[in-house]
Design a protein around this nucleic acid. Structure first.
Lengths: 257, 257
DNA sequence: TGTACATCAGTGAACGCGCGTTCACTGATGTAC
DNA sequence: TGTACATCAGTGAACGCGCGTTCACTGATGTAC
């Protein structure tokens, strides 16, 4: 009980700092609202810790509140149910990955298309290695019975959107050199849902290729994290990245850039 | 209780058939041994049903015994613990996939290398679509805290072994046409664990390429099963396979065959 | 600036549930003579 | 072929645990006058 209090006190004590006071004034935020933000963040942090330690399926609201030193019922002032908490964590994971990849990609000169592609691949892998359980939370086994709500869609597409952008610009470069052959009707029909969010400039084959490369990227990462490379690729970071870089070269070649 | 009995009776009743009697004679199997086999199989079936319905993490020995109408403690006459049961299921899944892929591959004429490669890809996907939860049991999120024992290794490598065989034969064909350039030292070192089970005939680049293609295959399948193609590729079997066939062509091209 | 009321955060007990595993037991099957 | 003993399969009660969620409550913060 004493320990619990200490944790909560730490959480409450934070508003002393200058920045927090400024923020409080700017937003005209009440002590209540500030604490609410702070504790919500503490809950999410504890939840992420727990996922990182024992996986998403073991996520338990009781364990979280225990960690924070609060009554197990208190969490219901912040999240209506375990599922809502899980949804929030999923959205945050997508956003965390999306932000990391966007940041890395934006540091490459716009005209360096393969450089931008490489940056996307590398930063996705980097983030996955640094956040293994969060990676599997969003790209691992679908949780049975869990239906992803609407709000997850936008964050989920950030990396794909970036990839498509690069694909489009590459197609623009290629387009000055000549037209592409038409894809078989069956493939064209298969791609129709994706077509609606990709300019006509990108041919069907380029689109399908890009998508296939995209899933290959995640396949490579899942293999590495899932232990499928055990006894196959040396278990050092140097070797693992050397093999990954080899793969990037292959993907670029397959894209015809 | 009455229902339970009925279920068990069904299980026990089976030895009436000619085949079972023959098997019993051949093996000089006692009624006890026969029942043991039958009930072990019934437990595994129920377990697979449960996995197919609610995923591996929800696997519960109590639910299995309930389904079979036996006391929850009875299962400990067959499996020492839940973890051992899970291990057996994992091994069976690997074997089921392995057998399916080997069967499909063996039906293609030996000299048709790309045909054999195609057969491996298609049958892997087919099996995964038909056994989604078993697929995620072996290629999905690693179960936290679960350490795969030695006995899973051999079954786990059946598909990969098949792939390597085709790779080796392709390298033999290629070898008559000329030598391959040496791979960078870093990549060569990264591949060293795999090297020990692949003949020198296959160059480092070919090996790395094959492995990368292999993970791309599983990436593609995981994307399809995991719902990542939702709103991207039309949700019909025709469209999904058309896109998959397109990918196979890409992989073959990337392998340089 | 002070007071009265409304809102909110957090508590602790309880509900009802399911889980894996152990244990002493009974009755059926198998084995040795 | 029959008997005596050993092995095995299955039972049902119990242990000890953790879970998500509800509820009536207390005390602190916020708001309107």
């Amino acid at each position: 009980m004493a320990v619990s209090r200490a944790v909560l006190t730490n959480v409450y004590a934070a508003p002393d700092s200058c920045q927090d006071v400024r923020v409080a004034k700017e937003k005209a935020a009440s002590i209540r609202a500030l604490n609410r933000e702070r504790i919500t963040a503490a809950i999410l942090d504890a939840a992420r810790d727990q996922i990182a330690h024992s996986g998403a399926s073991a996520l338990s609201v009781r364990a979280i509140t225990r960690e924070l030193g609060m009554a197990s019922s208190a969490i219901y002032r912040y999240f209506p149910s375990r599922d809502d908490l899980l949804t929030k964590l999923i959205i945050d994971s997508y956003d965390s990955l999306g932000a990391a990849v966007e940041a890395a990609e934006s540091r490459v000169p716009r005209e360096d298309l393969t450089g931008r592609f490489r940056a996307i691949c590398r930063s996705t892998r980097r983030w996955a290695l640094d956040n293994q359980h969060e990676y599997f939370l969003i790209y691992g086994t679908p949780v049975p019975g869990y239906k992803a709500p609407q709000d997850t869609i936008a964050p989920a597409t950030r990396v794909a959107t970036l990839m498509i952008t690069v694909l489009v610009e590459a197609a623009a470069v290629r387009a000055t050199n000549g037209r592409q052959p038409a894809a078989p009707a069956e493939l064209r029909r298969a791609l129709s849902p994706m077509r609606s969010s990709v300019p006509d400039l990108v041919s069907d084959a380029e689109m399908a290729n890009g998508l296939s490369t995209f899933s290959a990227l995640f396949g490579a990462i899942s293999f590495e994290l899932g232990g499928q490379l055990h006894n196959v690729i040396r278990e050092t970071e140097t070797s693992r990245s050397a093999y990954f870089e080899f793969q990037i070269d292959g993907w670029i070649a397959a894209l015809g850039w």
